[in-house]
Amino acid sequence: MLSKQEISTGAQARGGSSEDFNTGSWRALRPIIDTSKCIHCMLCYLYCPDNAVCIIKESAKQNGNPEVTGVDLKHCKGCSICSQVCPVHCIKMIPEEEAKKVDKKD
């Protein structure tokens, strides 16, 4: 029988280290949030499977409630769940190639 010291601890990884990995390159569509129409209901934030909707948790502008500020393009895979669940339809999905062209101009 193995002694305690000899038992392998198995493979280990730093918690949350997947954030170093870029899954944004998967994206064919990019969500564009019209923050002027957004009612900051937090549905897109909670539903996003890739945790890619960015918020300020306690925003002065929102009287201490959370505020949606944009999308984390390093992790967003462009699934469009956020756009489908938004109750005021303020998230548009546009082709990534078009979005990239706009990025270059800016």
Binding site: S18, P49, D50, N51, A52, H75, C79
Partner: peptide
Amino acid sequence: VGGHRLCAGCPAPTIGK
């Protein structure tokens, strides 16, 4: 958190989160 390799739009990580 993000950066995992589940399919785009898979709701399993939302359930986990």
